[in-house]
Design a protein around this nucleic acid. Structure first.
Length: 568
RNA sequence: UGGGGUGUCGUCAAGCGGAAAGACACGGGCCUUUGGAGCCCGCAUUCGGAGGUUCGAAUCCUCCCACCCCAGCCA
Protein backbone atom coordinates (compact mmCIF):
# COMPACT_ATOMS: atom_id res chain seq x y z
CA UNK A 1 0.00 0.00 0.00
CA UNK A 2 1.14 3.46 -0.82
CA UNK A 3 1.59 6.03 1.86
CA UNK A 4 -1.46 8.26 1.82
CA UNK A 5 -0.98 11.55 0.01
CA UNK A 6 -0.96 14.51 2.34
CA UNK A 7 -4.46 15.85 2.15
CA UNK A 8 -5.04 18.61 -0.29
CA UNK A 9 -5.14 21.59 2.01
CA UNK A 10 -4.53 24.00 -0.86
CA UNK A 11 -1.86 25.81 1.06
CA UNK A 12 1.75 25.16 1.95
CA UNK A 13 2.47 23.46 5.25
CA UNK A 14 3.05 25.67 8.26
CA UNK A 15 4.66 24.86 11.56
CA UNK A 16 1.40 24.82 13.52
CA UNK A 17 -0.20 22.41 11.10
CA UNK A 18 2.92 20.27 11.46
CA UNK A 19 2.64 20.28 15.25
CA UNK A 20 -0.99 19.24 15.04
CA UNK A 21 -0.19 16.49 12.56
CA UNK A 22 2.50 15.22 14.92
CA UNK A 23 0.15 15.37 17.92
CA UNK A 24 -2.46 13.46 15.97
CA UNK A 25 0.11 10.83 15.07
CA UNK A 26 1.09 10.54 18.74
CA UNK A 27 -2.56 10.53 19.77
CA UNK A 28 -1.75 13.35 22.15
CA UNK A 29 -5.30 14.55 22.80
CA UNK A 30 -7.12 11.32 21.90
CA UNK A 31 -7.07 12.46 18.31
CA UNK A 32 -8.96 15.64 19.05
CA UNK A 33 -8.22 19.04 17.56
CA UNK A 34 -10.03 21.89 19.24
CA UNK A 35 -9.05 25.51 18.71
CA UNK A 36 -10.63 28.82 19.55
CA UNK A 37 -10.68 32.39 18.31
CA UNK A 38 -10.57 34.60 21.43
CA UNK A 39 -11.12 38.29 20.58
CA UNK A 40 -11.42 40.98 23.20
CA UNK A 41 -14.53 43.00 22.35
CA UNK A 42 -12.78 46.35 22.52
CA UNK A 43 -12.66 47.22 18.84
CA UNK A 44 -13.54 46.01 15.38
CA UNK A 45 -11.87 43.04 13.75
CA UNK A 46 -9.24 43.75 11.11
CA UNK A 47 -7.42 41.79 8.45
CA UNK A 48 -4.87 40.66 11.03
CA UNK A 49 -7.68 39.02 12.97
CA UNK A 50 -8.81 37.41 9.72
CA UNK A 51 -5.44 35.68 9.60
CA UNK A 52 -6.04 34.27 13.07
CA UNK A 53 -9.65 33.35 12.30
CA UNK A 54 -8.68 31.51 9.12
CA UNK A 55 -5.87 29.78 10.98
CA UNK A 56 -7.95 28.63 13.95
CA UNK A 57 -11.11 27.67 12.09
CA UNK A 58 -9.07 26.32 9.17
CA UNK A 59 -6.85 24.08 11.26
CA UNK A 60 -9.87 22.69 13.05
CA UNK A 61 -11.76 22.04 9.82
CA UNK A 62 -8.79 20.43 8.09
CA UNK A 63 -8.33 18.04 10.97
CA UNK A 64 -11.90 17.14 11.70
CA UNK A 65 -11.89 19.33 14.79
CA UNK A 66 -13.84 22.22 16.22
CA UNK A 67 -13.20 25.89 16.77
CA UNK A 68 -14.93 27.99 19.42
CA UNK A 69 -15.66 31.68 19.38
CA UNK A 70 -14.82 33.05 22.79
CA UNK A 71 -14.93 36.64 23.90
CA UNK A 72 -12.11 37.53 26.21
CA UNK A 73 -14.17 39.99 28.20
CA UNK A 74 -12.35 40.49 31.46
CA UNK A 75 -11.88 44.24 31.29
CA UNK A 76 -15.28 45.97 31.41
CA UNK A 77 -13.70 49.41 31.25
CA UNK A 78 -12.82 48.93 27.58
CA UNK A 79 -15.35 46.48 26.28
CA UNK A 80 -18.71 47.09 24.68
CA UNK A 81 -21.66 45.21 23.26
CA UNK A 82 -21.30 47.04 19.94
CA UNK A 83 -17.96 45.32 19.50
CA UNK A 84 -19.20 41.83 20.29
CA UNK A 85 -21.97 42.23 17.75
CA UNK A 86 -19.64 43.46 15.03
CA UNK A 87 -17.18 40.66 15.76
CA UNK A 88 -19.82 37.98 15.38
CA UNK A 89 -21.05 39.54 12.16
CA UNK A 90 -17.54 39.71 10.75
CA UNK A 91 -16.58 36.14 11.62
CA UNK A 92 -19.82 34.89 10.10
CA UNK A 93 -19.34 37.02 7.01
CA UNK A 94 -15.87 35.60 6.55
CA UNK A 95 -17.57 32.25 6.25
CA UNK A 96 -16.91 30.57 9.59
CA UNK A 97 -19.33 28.85 11.89
CA UNK A 98 -18.82 28.31 15.60
CA UNK A 99 -21.98 26.22 15.85
CA UNK A 100 -23.28 26.27 19.40
CA UNK A 101 -19.87 27.08 20.79
CA UNK A 102 -20.18 30.78 21.51
CA UNK A 103 -18.50 31.46 24.83
CA UNK A 104 -17.49 34.35 27.01
CA UNK A 105 -14.69 34.34 29.55
CA UNK A 106 -17.23 36.07 31.76
CA UNK A 107 -19.24 32.82 31.71
CA UNK A 108 -16.42 31.39 33.81
CA UNK A 109 -16.11 34.13 36.43
CA UNK A 110 -17.51 31.94 39.18
CA UNK A 111 -15.23 29.01 38.33
CA UNK A 112 -12.28 31.33 37.98
CA UNK A 113 -12.97 32.69 41.41
CA UNK A 114 -13.02 29.17 42.84
CA UNK A 115 -9.69 28.40 41.19
CA UNK A 116 -8.22 31.54 42.70
CA UNK A 117 -9.45 30.44 46.11
CA UNK A 118 -7.80 27.08 45.53
CA UNK A 119 -4.53 28.78 44.71
CA UNK A 120 -4.75 30.70 47.99
CA UNK A 121 -5.48 27.50 49.88
CA UNK A 122 -2.42 25.93 48.29
CA UNK A 123 -0.34 28.87 49.43
CA UNK A 124 0.20 29.91 45.82
CA UNK A 125 -1.55 33.27 45.88
CA UNK A 126 -1.85 36.21 48.24
CA UNK A 127 -3.66 39.49 48.62
CA UNK A 128 -1.29 42.42 48.19
CA UNK A 129 -1.93 45.99 49.29
CA UNK A 130 0.95 47.65 47.54
CA UNK A 131 -0.04 50.54 45.28
CA UNK A 132 0.33 50.32 41.55
CA UNK A 133 3.49 52.36 41.76
CA UNK A 134 4.91 50.23 44.55
CA UNK A 135 4.18 47.03 42.70
CA UNK A 136 6.09 48.40 39.74
CA UNK A 137 9.01 49.35 41.96
CA UNK A 138 9.06 46.01 43.71
CA UNK A 139 9.03 44.26 40.36
CA UNK A 140 12.61 45.28 39.74
CA UNK A 141 14.00 45.84 36.25
CA UNK A 142 15.01 43.79 33.24
CA UNK A 143 18.44 43.20 34.66
CA UNK A 144 17.58 43.54 38.33
CA UNK A 145 15.61 41.02 40.37
CA UNK A 146 12.52 42.26 42.14
CA UNK A 147 11.88 42.04 45.86
CA UNK A 148 9.13 40.36 47.79
CA UNK A 149 6.01 42.25 48.72
CA UNK A 150 5.63 42.69 52.48
CA UNK A 151 2.20 41.07 52.11
CA UNK A 152 3.63 37.95 50.52
CA UNK A 153 3.77 35.99 53.77
CA UNK A 154 0.24 36.50 54.97
CA UNK A 155 -1.50 33.42 56.31
CA UNK A 156 -3.79 31.42 54.11
CA UNK A 157 -6.70 32.27 56.39
CA UNK A 158 -6.05 35.98 56.13
CA UNK A 159 -5.71 35.76 52.34
CA UNK A 160 -8.95 33.82 52.08
CA UNK A 161 -10.72 36.41 54.19
CA UNK A 162 -9.27 39.36 52.32
CA UNK A 163 -10.03 37.90 48.90
CA UNK A 164 -13.60 37.21 49.91
CA UNK A 165 -13.94 40.79 51.11
CA UNK A 166 -12.45 42.04 47.85
CA UNK A 167 -15.27 40.28 46.07
CA UNK A 168 -17.78 41.60 48.57
CA UNK A 169 -16.82 45.14 47.68
CA UNK A 170 -15.29 46.12 50.98
CA UNK A 171 -12.27 47.74 49.42
CA UNK A 172 -11.70 50.60 47.04
CA UNK A 173 -10.65 50.15 43.45
CA UNK A 174 -6.93 49.64 43.26
CA UNK A 175 -6.42 49.15 46.96
CA UNK A 176 -5.93 45.40 46.89
CA UNK A 177 -5.00 42.81 44.29
CA UNK A 178 -4.63 39.08 44.33
CA UNK A 179 -1.20 37.94 43.20
CA UNK A 180 0.26 34.58 42.28
CA UNK A 181 3.17 33.64 44.51
CA UNK A 182 5.87 32.61 42.08
CA UNK A 183 9.34 34.14 42.02
CA UNK A 184 10.25 37.80 42.36
CA UNK A 185 13.72 37.04 41.03
CA UNK A 186 12.62 35.32 37.84
CA UNK A 187 14.35 36.63 34.72
CA UNK A 188 10.89 36.49 33.17
CA UNK A 189 9.05 39.50 34.52
CA UNK A 190 5.72 37.80 33.99
CA UNK A 191 6.65 35.34 36.73
CA UNK A 192 7.40 38.02 39.35
CA UNK A 193 4.19 37.48 41.31
CA UNK A 194 1.77 38.59 38.61
CA UNK A 195 -1.53 40.20 39.54
CA UNK A 196 -4.40 37.83 38.87
CA UNK A 197 -7.38 39.77 40.23
CA UNK A 198 -7.97 43.50 40.53
CA UNK A 199 -10.81 45.53 41.97
CA UNK A 200 -12.63 47.38 39.23
CA UNK A 201 -16.03 48.95 39.62
CA UNK A 202 -17.29 49.11 36.07
CA UNK A 203 -20.46 47.80 34.52
CA UNK A 204 -19.76 44.69 32.55
CA UNK A 205 -21.69 44.22 29.29
CA UNK A 206 -22.82 40.77 30.40
CA UNK A 207 -22.50 40.47 34.16
CA UNK A 208 -23.59 44.00 34.91
CA UNK A 209 -22.60 44.96 38.42
CA UNK A 210 -22.41 41.49 39.82
CA UNK A 211 -18.65 41.66 40.15
CA UNK A 212 -16.29 44.32 41.35
CA UNK A 213 -13.21 42.16 40.94
CA UNK A 214 -12.08 40.93 37.56
CA UNK A 215 -9.49 38.28 36.65
CA UNK A 216 -6.48 39.23 34.54
CA UNK A 217 -5.75 37.82 31.10
CA UNK A 218 -3.04 35.35 32.08
CA UNK A 219 -5.18 33.74 34.71
CA UNK A 220 -8.34 33.76 32.61
CA UNK A 221 -7.04 32.59 29.31
CA UNK A 222 -5.40 29.32 30.24
CA UNK A 223 -8.31 28.35 32.47
CA UNK A 224 -10.88 29.20 29.79
CA UNK A 225 -8.93 27.08 27.31
CA UNK A 226 -8.82 24.28 29.83
CA UNK A 227 -12.53 24.48 30.62
CA UNK A 228 -13.39 24.31 26.92
CA UNK A 229 -11.08 21.38 26.28
CA UNK A 230 -8.98 23.33 23.80
CA UNK A 231 -6.06 21.33 22.44
CA UNK A 232 -4.03 23.97 20.64
CA UNK A 233 -4.22 27.51 21.96
CA UNK A 234 -2.88 29.65 19.17
CA UNK A 235 -1.88 33.23 19.88
CA UNK A 236 0.55 35.87 18.72
CA UNK A 237 4.26 36.20 19.44
CA UNK A 238 4.06 38.77 22.22
CA UNK A 239 2.51 36.08 24.42
CA UNK A 240 5.52 33.84 24.13
CA UNK A 241 6.86 35.23 27.41
CA UNK A 242 3.53 34.46 29.03
CA UNK A 243 3.58 30.78 28.22
CA UNK A 244 5.44 29.79 31.40
CA UNK A 245 2.67 31.48 33.34
CA UNK A 246 -0.02 29.81 31.24
CA UNK A 247 1.61 26.51 32.08
CA UNK A 248 2.14 27.42 35.75
CA UNK A 249 -1.53 28.02 36.53
CA UNK A 250 -2.66 24.82 34.87
CA UNK A 251 0.10 22.83 36.53
CA UNK A 252 -0.54 24.22 40.00
CA UNK A 253 -4.27 23.70 39.71
CA UNK A 254 -3.77 20.24 38.20
CA UNK A 255 -6.09 20.92 35.33
CA UNK A 256 -6.42 19.68 31.76
CA UNK A 257 -3.57 21.36 29.93
CA UNK A 258 -3.83 22.65 26.35
CA UNK A 259 -0.67 23.82 24.62
CA UNK A 260 -0.08 27.40 23.67
CA UNK A 261 1.55 28.03 20.29
CA UNK A 262 2.60 31.46 19.06
CA UNK A 263 2.78 32.85 15.51
CA UNK A 264 3.66 36.24 14.05
CA UNK A 265 0.84 38.72 13.65
CA UNK A 266 0.11 40.20 10.25
CA UNK A 267 1.53 43.53 9.19
CA UNK A 268 0.33 44.99 5.91
CA UNK A 269 2.13 47.72 4.00
CA UNK A 270 0.59 51.19 3.72
CA UNK A 271 -1.78 50.70 6.63
CA UNK A 272 -1.76 50.20 10.38
CA UNK A 273 -3.00 47.24 12.34
CA UNK A 274 -2.89 48.29 15.96
CA UNK A 275 -6.24 48.72 17.64
CA UNK A 276 -4.94 51.81 19.37
CA UNK A 277 -4.10 53.48 16.07
CA UNK A 278 -7.29 52.38 14.35
CA UNK A 279 -9.32 53.68 17.28
CA UNK A 280 -7.49 56.98 17.04
CA UNK A 281 -8.29 57.31 13.33
CA UNK A 282 -11.95 56.68 14.07
CA UNK A 283 -12.25 58.82 17.18
CA UNK A 284 -10.41 61.78 15.76
CA UNK A 285 -12.30 61.71 12.48
CA UNK A 286 -9.44 60.90 10.13
CA UNK A 287 -11.74 58.29 8.62
CA UNK A 288 -15.51 57.95 8.64
CA UNK A 289 -15.91 55.17 11.16
CA UNK A 290 -14.68 51.63 11.63
CA UNK A 291 -16.22 50.61 8.33
CA UNK A 292 -14.65 53.37 6.28
CA UNK A 293 -13.59 51.61 3.06
CA UNK A 294 -10.01 52.76 3.60
CA UNK A 295 -9.76 50.93 6.91
CA UNK A 296 -8.09 47.50 7.11
CA UNK A 297 -11.02 46.36 9.23
CA UNK A 298 -13.18 43.49 8.05
CA UNK A 299 -16.15 45.85 7.94
CA UNK A 300 -14.11 48.40 5.96
CA UNK A 301 -12.96 45.80 3.46
CA UNK A 302 -16.51 44.49 3.15
CA UNK A 303 -17.84 47.96 2.42
CA UNK A 304 -14.97 48.50 0.02
CA UNK A 305 -16.17 45.51 -2.00
CA UNK A 306 -13.79 42.77 -0.90
CA UNK A 307 -15.27 39.28 -0.90
CA UNK A 308 -14.88 36.82 1.98
CA UNK A 309 -13.35 34.41 -0.52
CA UNK A 310 -10.66 36.86 -1.48
CA UNK A 311 -9.75 37.52 2.14
CA UNK A 312 -9.55 33.83 2.88
CA UNK A 313 -7.42 33.33 -0.20
CA UNK A 314 -5.12 36.08 0.98
CA UNK A 315 -4.80 34.48 4.39
CA UNK A 316 -3.79 31.22 2.73
CA UNK A 317 -1.19 32.91 0.59
CA UNK A 318 0.59 34.79 3.34
CA UNK A 319 1.34 31.66 5.31
CA UNK A 320 2.01 31.30 9.00
CA UNK A 321 5.41 31.58 10.63
CA UNK A 322 7.21 33.11 13.58
CA UNK A 323 9.25 35.82 11.93
CA UNK A 324 8.11 39.42 11.95
CA UNK A 325 7.04 40.38 8.51
CA UNK A 326 5.35 43.01 6.42
CA UNK A 327 3.12 41.67 3.69
CA UNK A 328 2.84 43.75 0.53
CA UNK A 329 -0.70 45.09 0.21
CA UNK A 330 -0.40 44.29 -3.51
CA UNK A 331 -0.95 40.67 -2.53
CA UNK A 332 -4.31 41.47 -0.94
CA UNK A 333 -5.24 43.45 -4.05
CA UNK A 334 -4.22 40.53 -6.21
CA UNK A 335 -6.53 38.24 -4.26
CA UNK A 336 -9.59 40.43 -4.86
CA UNK A 337 -8.81 41.01 -8.49
CA UNK A 338 -8.52 37.30 -9.09
CA UNK A 339 -11.83 36.59 -7.39
CA UNK A 340 -13.75 39.50 -8.87
CA UNK A 341 -12.42 38.83 -12.35
CA UNK A 342 -14.29 35.54 -12.24
CA UNK A 343 -17.54 36.74 -10.75
CA UNK A 344 -18.10 40.45 -11.36
CA UNK A 345 -20.34 41.33 -14.30
CA UNK A 346 -18.81 43.84 -16.64
CA UNK A 347 -20.46 47.16 -17.14
CA UNK A 348 -19.52 50.53 -18.61
CA UNK A 349 -19.14 53.65 -16.55
CA UNK A 350 -17.44 56.94 -17.33
CA UNK A 351 -15.75 58.60 -14.37
CA UNK A 352 -14.73 61.93 -15.97
CA UNK A 353 -17.15 62.40 -18.85
CA UNK A 354 -16.05 64.02 -22.12
CA UNK A 355 -18.88 64.80 -24.55
CA UNK A 356 -18.68 63.22 -27.96
CA UNK A 357 -20.99 64.14 -30.83
CA UNK A 358 -21.27 61.59 -33.62
CA UNK A 359 -21.72 63.96 -36.55
CA UNK A 360 -22.94 61.34 -38.99
CA UNK A 361 -25.43 59.70 -36.67
CA UNK A 362 -29.11 60.73 -36.85
CA UNK A 363 -30.29 62.99 -34.08
CA UNK A 364 -33.25 60.88 -33.00
CA UNK A 365 -31.88 57.41 -33.54
CA UNK A 366 -31.17 54.96 -30.74
CA UNK A 367 -29.77 51.48 -31.14
CA UNK A 368 -29.68 48.71 -28.57
CA UNK A 369 -26.33 46.96 -28.84
CA UNK A 370 -25.38 43.59 -27.40
CA UNK A 371 -22.75 43.54 -24.67
CA UNK A 372 -21.34 40.54 -22.88
CA UNK A 373 -21.66 40.48 -19.10
CA UNK A 374 -18.45 38.54 -18.83
CA UNK A 375 -16.48 37.66 -21.95
CA UNK A 376 -14.77 34.85 -20.06
CA UNK A 377 -17.95 33.30 -18.82
CA UNK A 378 -20.75 33.04 -21.40
CA UNK A 379 -23.14 31.67 -18.81
CA UNK A 380 -23.32 35.15 -17.33
CA UNK A 381 -25.21 36.21 -20.41
CA UNK A 382 -25.46 39.51 -22.21
CA UNK A 383 -27.38 42.77 -22.03
CA UNK A 384 -28.39 45.63 -24.29
CA UNK A 385 -26.73 49.01 -24.10
CA UNK A 386 -28.21 52.04 -25.87
CA UNK A 387 -26.16 53.96 -28.44
CA UNK A 388 -27.04 57.41 -29.75
CA UNK A 389 -25.60 60.54 -31.32
CA UNK A 390 -24.48 62.06 -28.05
CA UNK A 391 -22.05 60.05 -25.98
CA UNK A 392 -19.61 60.35 -23.12
CA UNK A 393 -16.18 58.81 -23.14
CA UNK A 394 -13.52 58.85 -20.45
CA UNK A 395 -11.68 62.14 -20.14
CA UNK A 396 -8.25 60.62 -20.22
CA UNK A 397 -9.01 58.47 -23.25
CA UNK A 398 -8.41 61.52 -25.44
CA UNK A 399 -5.25 63.52 -25.93
CA UNK A 400 -4.94 66.30 -28.47
CA UNK A 401 -1.24 65.77 -28.72
CA UNK A 402 -0.68 62.11 -27.91
CA UNK A 403 2.74 60.90 -26.83
CA UNK A 404 4.43 57.93 -28.46
CA UNK A 405 2.77 54.96 -26.81
CA UNK A 406 -0.65 56.49 -26.28
CA UNK A 407 -3.01 54.68 -28.60
CA UNK A 408 -6.37 55.90 -27.47
CA UNK A 409 -8.34 58.66 -29.21
CA UNK A 410 -6.66 61.71 -30.77
CA UNK A 411 -7.48 64.04 -33.64
CA UNK A 412 -7.91 62.15 -36.92
CA UNK A 413 -7.36 58.85 -35.14
CA UNK A 414 -9.77 55.89 -35.24
CA UNK A 415 -10.59 53.70 -32.24
CA UNK A 416 -13.32 51.27 -31.31
CA UNK A 417 -16.17 51.94 -28.91
CA UNK A 418 -16.68 48.70 -27.11
CA UNK A 419 -19.50 46.58 -28.58
CA UNK A 420 -20.43 49.56 -30.81
CA UNK A 421 -18.60 51.17 -33.74
CA UNK A 422 -15.25 52.41 -34.89
CA UNK A 423 -15.18 56.15 -34.45
CA UNK A 424 -12.81 58.73 -35.84
CA UNK A 425 -12.15 62.08 -34.22
CA UNK A 426 -12.80 64.90 -36.70
CA UNK A 427 -13.06 67.93 -34.44
CA UNK A 428 -12.15 69.29 -31.06
CA UNK A 429 -14.11 71.97 -29.20
CA UNK A 430 -12.30 73.89 -26.51
CA UNK A 431 -13.33 76.30 -23.82
CA UNK A 432 -12.32 79.74 -25.05
CA UNK A 433 -11.17 80.87 -21.65
CA UNK A 434 -9.29 77.86 -20.36
CA UNK A 435 -8.36 76.02 -23.52
CA UNK A 436 -9.75 72.86 -21.98
CA UNK A 437 -11.19 70.28 -24.37
CA UNK A 438 -14.94 70.22 -23.73
CA UNK A 439 -16.34 68.28 -26.67
CA UNK A 440 -15.25 66.03 -29.48
CA UNK A 441 -16.76 65.60 -32.90
CA UNK A 442 -16.46 62.17 -34.36
CA UNK A 443 -17.86 60.09 -37.19
CA UNK A 444 -18.67 56.42 -37.08
CA UNK A 445 -18.16 53.86 -39.76
CA UNK A 446 -21.65 52.26 -40.03
CA UNK A 447 -20.01 49.11 -41.38
CA UNK A 448 -18.32 48.44 -38.05
CA UNK A 449 -21.44 47.90 -35.97
CA UNK A 450 -20.67 45.56 -33.09
CA UNK A 451 -17.01 46.51 -33.28
CA UNK A 452 -15.72 44.60 -36.30
CA UNK A 453 -14.54 46.08 -39.57
CA UNK A 454 -15.58 44.01 -42.61
CA UNK A 455 -12.41 45.06 -44.41
CA UNK A 456 -10.38 43.60 -41.57
CA UNK A 457 -8.75 46.84 -40.55
CA UNK A 458 -7.59 47.11 -36.99
CA UNK A 459 -7.64 49.80 -34.36
CA UNK A 460 -5.20 50.00 -31.52
CA UNK A 461 -7.65 50.85 -28.77
CA UNK A 462 -11.11 50.05 -27.50
CA UNK A 463 -12.83 52.63 -25.33
CA UNK A 464 -15.70 52.36 -22.90
CA UNK A 465 -18.53 54.83 -23.36
CA UNK A 466 -22.07 55.63 -22.41
CA UNK A 467 -25.01 57.23 -24.22
CA UNK A 468 -25.45 60.74 -22.79
CA UNK A 469 -29.23 60.75 -22.73
CA UNK A 470 -29.63 57.21 -21.45
CA UNK A 471 -26.86 57.02 -18.93
CA UNK A 472 -27.52 57.71 -15.28
CA UNK A 473 -25.55 59.83 -12.89
CA UNK A 474 -23.54 58.28 -10.10
CA UNK A 475 -21.13 59.27 -7.41
CA UNK A 476 -17.93 57.29 -7.41
CA UNK A 477 -15.46 57.16 -4.55
CA UNK A 478 -11.91 56.38 -5.51
CA UNK A 479 -9.77 55.00 -2.73
CA UNK A 480 -6.04 54.84 -2.43
CA UNK A 481 -3.70 53.62 0.30
CA UNK A 482 -4.51 55.19 3.67
CA UNK A 483 -0.84 55.98 4.27
CA UNK A 484 2.01 57.19 2.12
CA UNK A 485 4.58 55.15 4.02
CA UNK A 486 4.85 51.39 3.74
CA UNK A 487 5.28 51.23 7.52
CA UNK A 488 3.53 54.17 9.18
CA UNK A 489 3.68 52.43 12.55
CA UNK A 490 7.42 52.84 12.65
CA UNK A 491 7.58 55.79 14.98
CA UNK A 492 11.26 55.42 15.59
CA UNK A 493 11.90 58.96 14.46
CA UNK A 494 9.67 60.11 17.27
CA UNK A 495 6.90 61.27 14.97
CA UNK A 496 3.22 60.51 14.94
CA UNK A 497 1.97 57.84 12.55
CA UNK A 498 -0.78 60.20 11.43
CA UNK A 499 1.67 62.46 9.66
CA UNK A 500 2.03 59.76 7.01
CA UNK A 501 -1.70 59.78 6.26
CA UNK A 502 -2.34 60.00 2.50
CA UNK A 503 -4.24 63.25 1.90
CA UNK A 504 -5.59 61.74 -1.31
CA UNK A 505 -6.76 58.43 0.06
CA UNK A 506 -10.31 59.37 -0.92
CA UNK A 507 -11.32 61.17 -4.10
CA UNK A 508 -15.02 61.68 -4.64
CA UNK A 509 -16.32 62.07 -8.18
CA UNK A 510 -19.89 63.30 -8.40
CA UNK A 511 -20.70 63.59 -12.10
CA UNK A 512 -19.96 60.12 -13.29
CA UNK A 513 -22.18 58.49 -15.90
CA UNK A 514 -22.99 54.80 -15.86
CA UNK A 515 -25.01 52.63 -18.21
CA UNK A 516 -28.78 52.56 -17.56
CA UNK A 517 -28.84 48.92 -16.53
CA UNK A 518 -27.27 49.94 -13.23
CA UNK A 519 -30.42 51.73 -12.13
CA UNK A 520 -31.56 50.26 -8.85
CA UNK A 521 -28.39 48.22 -8.38
CA UNK A 522 -28.39 46.36 -5.07
CA UNK A 523 -26.26 47.79 -2.29
CA UNK A 524 -23.13 45.71 -1.91
CA UNK A 525 -23.27 44.32 -5.44
CA UNK A 526 -19.98 44.29 -7.32
CA UNK A 527 -19.16 45.16 -10.90
CA UNK A 528 -16.21 45.56 -13.12
CA UNK A 529 -16.31 48.93 -14.83
CA UNK A 530 -14.53 47.91 -17.98
CA UNK A 531 -10.98 49.16 -18.29
CA UNK A 532 -11.16 50.86 -14.88
CA UNK A 533 -11.50 48.47 -12.01
CA UNK A 534 -13.90 46.77 -9.66
CA UNK A 535 -16.60 48.81 -7.96
CA UNK A 536 -19.36 48.03 -5.52
CA UNK A 537 -22.55 49.82 -4.64
CA UNK A 538 -22.00 51.50 -1.28
CA UNK A 539 -24.09 49.78 1.35
CA UNK A 540 -24.57 52.89 3.45
CA UNK A 541 -24.91 55.93 1.21
CA UNK A 542 -26.26 54.56 -2.05
CA UNK A 543 -29.96 54.71 -2.91
CA UNK A 544 -32.18 54.31 -5.94
CA UNK A 545 -32.20 58.07 -6.37
CA UNK A 546 -28.49 58.57 -5.87
CA UNK A 547 -26.15 55.75 -6.79
CA UNK A 548 -22.84 55.65 -4.98
CA UNK A 549 -20.01 53.32 -5.99
CA UNK A 550 -16.85 52.46 -4.11
CA UNK A 551 -13.79 51.50 -6.08
CA UNK A 552 -12.56 48.25 -4.60
CA UNK A 553 -9.38 48.07 -6.64
CA UNK A 554 -8.22 49.22 -10.06
CA UNK A 555 -7.53 46.87 -12.92
CA UNK A 556 -3.85 46.37 -13.61
CA UNK A 557 -2.93 49.38 -15.65
CA UNK A 558 -0.13 48.94 -18.14
CA UNK A 559 -0.52 52.44 -19.52
CA UNK A 560 -0.17 53.96 -16.05
CA UNK A 561 2.98 51.90 -15.63
CA UNK A 562 4.43 53.17 -18.89
CA UNK A 563 3.70 56.76 -17.91
CA UNK A 564 5.28 56.25 -14.52
CA UNK A 565 8.35 54.66 -16.05
CA UNK A 566 8.76 57.58 -18.47
CA UNK A 567 8.42 60.14 -15.72
CA UNK A 568 11.33 58.54 -13.98
C1' U B 1 24.52 44.11 30.96
C1' G B 2 18.47 39.83 32.20
C1' G B 3 14.85 36.70 29.75
C1' G B 4 12.09 35.09 25.41
C1' G B 5 12.08 34.90 20.03
C1' U B 6 13.56 35.45 14.76
C1' G B 7 17.15 35.73 10.60
C1' U B 8 16.16 31.65 3.03
C1' C B 9 14.94 36.40 -3.68
C1' G B 10 12.28 43.42 -3.52
C1' U B 11 7.81 41.16 -0.24
C1' C B 12 5.66 36.70 1.93
C1' A B 13 7.21 31.55 2.34
C1' A B 14 8.51 25.94 1.65
C1' G B 15 12.72 23.28 3.09
C1' C B 16 13.99 19.33 8.98
C1' G B 17 21.84 16.02 6.31
C1' G B 18 21.68 14.27 -0.34
C1' A B 19 22.36 19.23 -2.50
C1' A B 20 17.25 26.33 -3.03
C1' A B 21 9.27 24.81 -4.02
C1' G B 22 5.56 28.27 -4.81
C1' A B 23 3.11 33.09 -4.64
C1' C B 24 3.10 38.47 -5.10
C1' A B 25 6.11 42.21 -7.21
C1' C B 26 9.34 43.08 -11.25
C1' G B 27 11.29 42.43 -16.62
C1' G B 28 10.44 40.35 -21.57
C1' G B 29 7.27 37.88 -25.24
C1' C B 30 2.52 35.76 -27.26
C1' C B 31 -2.61 36.64 -27.50
C1' U B 32 -6.65 40.03 -27.08
C1' U B 33 -13.38 44.08 -29.17
C1' U B 34 -11.16 45.61 -21.44
C1' G B 35 -3.32 48.68 -22.53
C1' G B 36 -8.05 43.72 -18.28
C1' A B 37 -7.87 38.45 -18.22
C1' G B 38 -5.07 34.24 -20.06
C1' C B 39 -0.47 31.87 -21.76
C1' C B 40 5.06 31.48 -22.09
C1' C B 41 9.94 32.84 -20.44
C1' G B 42 13.34 35.21 -16.96
C1' C B 43 14.21 36.43 -11.79
C1' A B 44 18.65 33.45 -4.65
C1' U B 45 25.53 28.78 -7.76
C1' U B 46 23.03 30.51 -2.62
C1' C B 47 20.27 30.48 2.60
C1' G B 48 22.67 37.07 8.60
C1' G B 49 28.42 36.34 9.27
C1' A B 50 32.80 33.40 10.54
C1' G B 51 34.68 28.86 11.88
C1' G B 52 33.87 23.49 12.60
C1' U B 53 31.62 18.25 12.00
C1' U B 54 30.50 15.28 7.50
C1' C B 55 31.73 11.95 1.33
C1' G B 56 27.91 15.75 1.49
C1' A B 57 25.19 21.38 5.53
C1' A B 58 20.07 26.37 4.52
C1' U B 59 19.45 21.98 7.50
C1' C B 60 24.16 19.49 13.05
C1' C B 61 27.97 22.16 16.54
C1' U B 62 30.64 26.77 18.23
C1' C B 63 31.26 31.84 18.34
C1' C B 64 29.67 36.48 16.52
C1' C B 65 26.15 40.10 14.31
C1' A B 66 21.26 42.18 13.39
C1' C B 67 16.18 42.75 14.36
C1' C B 68 11.51 41.95 17.39
C1' C B 69 9.00 41.28 22.32
C1' C B 70 8.88 41.83 27.96
C1' A B 71 9.28 46.22 33.76
C1' G B 72 -0.31 47.48 32.67
C1' C B 73 -4.06 46.49 38.78
C1' C B 74 -4.48 45.94 29.21
C1' A B 75 -5.27 41.77 26.14
Amino acid sequence: MKTPKPKNTAHPPNFIGNIIAEDLRANKYDGRVHTRFPPEPNGYLHIGHAKSICLNFGLAAENGGLCNLRFDDTNPSKEELEYVESIMEDVRWLGFDWGDRLFYASDYFEQLYEHAVQLIKDGKAYVCELSTREIREYRGALTEPGKDSPYRTRSIEENLDLFERMRAGEFEDGSHVLRAKIDMASPNLNMRDPVIYRILRAEHHRTGNKWCIYPMYDFTHCLSDSIEGITHSICTLEFEDHRPLYDWFLYELKLYHPQQIEFARLNLSYTVMSKRMLLELVDQGYVNGWDDPRMPTISGLRRRGYTPESIRDFCQRIGVAKRDSMVDIALLEHSVREDLNKRAPRVMGVLRPLRVVIDNYPEDQVEELDALNNPENPSMGSRKVPFSRLLYIEGDDFLEDPPKKFFRLAPRREVRLRYAYFIKCVGVVKDEQTGEVVELHCTIDPETRGGWAPDGRKVKATLHWVSAAHSIEAEVRLYDHLFLRANPSDEREGGDFKRYLNPNSLETLTSCRVEPGLKGATPGSRYQFERLGYFCVDSVDSSDEALVFNRTVTLRDTWAKIKKAENR
